[in-house]
Write a protein that binds this DNA or RNA. Structure first.
Lengths: 231, 231
DNA sequence: ATTATCTATAGATCTATAGATAATGC
DNA sequence: ATTATCTATAGATCTATAGATAATGC
């Protein structure tokens, strides 16, 4: 799927098997099986036997490729992040070619979130189940993806397509974009009742760009009803 | 803690014990113990024996007050939501008295998120472990809290303190406020390195109000550098 | 009698490994 | 010989309940 991912796997998670290509192949089987089972039943309710079976290995073989069940969860989280990152990187490339790059990036990123709904949810739910060593790596992956948005915003600001603002502010907007994409996954059961994905994208883009300037600036006092029980 | 909560407990979760006050008392003990254990070790890694012990009951007695371990998780989620809702309701009351009600609501709500950091995280992580019957109830709780923000926004719009917009748009902003508060909890490990809570509140308030109008409106073409590798 | 509580454990898992077996290459 | 794979199971849980015991009120 992704070179980075495979390098990570080999680097971090010990294995008894010497043949590196075989390790990559078997771990692919394991991860593909695990993603489905974890999404369907959660990490803790999935047994190592189910994992081995679904991956087409015996339980003994499974443990030649990982040292523990948590190893498998880490491989899963890492694979998901690699796929999200690839999706975002593609979105950035495509956005270079259009008149409104930021809008395009947001739209493409939200589509990635839409397609990877269950995967993103899984990371929200199970990151805590990782041993702290790997939890750190997974959280840093999250930040690296947010950093892609920071770069876009920075470049747009230098080009004069965004107003000037300090780096902290810009960075926070990158986090907001990231999380508002995730929001479509963890509130979708509600949001999708009221909006299509396209409507959601349009409204959130307007929100992020501050185009629907929410606050009215000091309405004339005469027109304001001031009552005690205002809301 | 909260009348609504107690009514819910008695209504939904069956018990063998007749004395309603006693049920309320013991369940309080159970929930208080469970919140701590679930936050520290997660739902699945916490055993019923640990729960009983920490609540000051025998394992046998514990099962007089709930029918399953999942019952306890539901009681915990419900108690947390009741406390968050109470916090938000208080924020709304306080906000009635100031010049900038929306800003005040946001600040107070974000403070609630800050204080209930671990509790909010727990709900994100463990809602999926609930039987679907109760997962629904918990998700509806989430929506009801968001609804409080919708009401504020609606009232402000009627009073002319917000620009006119349709209900869908307004509702989405309420969700955004809710989730940007949660974001402080699930990205705090990173955000708190760069911002204090107060800074975070100020920047997000400006973001939500659209005061830092991100997009520059059509800069003169002469001033735009258009290069292929724009970012 | 009724209610609440406790101890002891049935019954059913689950993870991870030891040791046997098969396949491959020198 | 070395590498990869498998079967069988050790060892350690964990949830939920049965049945005994204590406390309370008629």
């Amino acid at each position: 799927m992704n070179i980075t991912r495979n390098i990570n796997c080999l680097k971090d998670v010990p294995t008894q098997v010497k043949n590196k290509d075989l390790v990559a192949l078997r771990r692919r089987q394991i991860v593909d099986a695990a993603v489905e089972l974890f999404i369907a039943n959660g990490f803790h309710k999935t047994t190592t036997r189910q994992l081995a079976r679904a991956a087409g290995l015996s339980i003994g073989s499974l443990y030649e490729y990982v040292e523990s069940k948590e190893d498998i969860l880490y491989l899963v989280c890492d694979a998901i992040h690699a796929e999200v990152e690839q999706g975002v990187a593609q979105a950035l490339e495509r956005a270079q070619t259009v008149a409104n790059p930021l809008g395009e990036v947001i739209r493409e990123y939200f589509k990635v979130c839409h397609e990877m709904n269950d995967h993103i949810l899984l990371i929200y739910q199970e990151t805590q189940s990782l041993p702290s060593k790997w939890r750190k790596v997974v959280l840093e992956n999250e930040i690296r993806i947010t950093g892609l948005f920071t770069s876009v915003l920075m470049q747009l600001m230098e080009d004069g397509q965004l107003i000037q603002m300090d780096g902290n502010c810009l960075d926070l907007i990158a986090h907001n974009i990231t999380v508002l994409g995730h929001m479509w996954t963890f509130r979708r059961w509600f949001l999708a009742r009221h909006y299509t994905l396209d409507q959601y994208v349009d409204m959130q883009t307007a929100f992020i760009l501050g185009q629907q300037n929410v606050a009215v600036k000091r309405p004339p006092a005469s027109k304001r009803k001031i009552t005690k029980k205002e809301f």
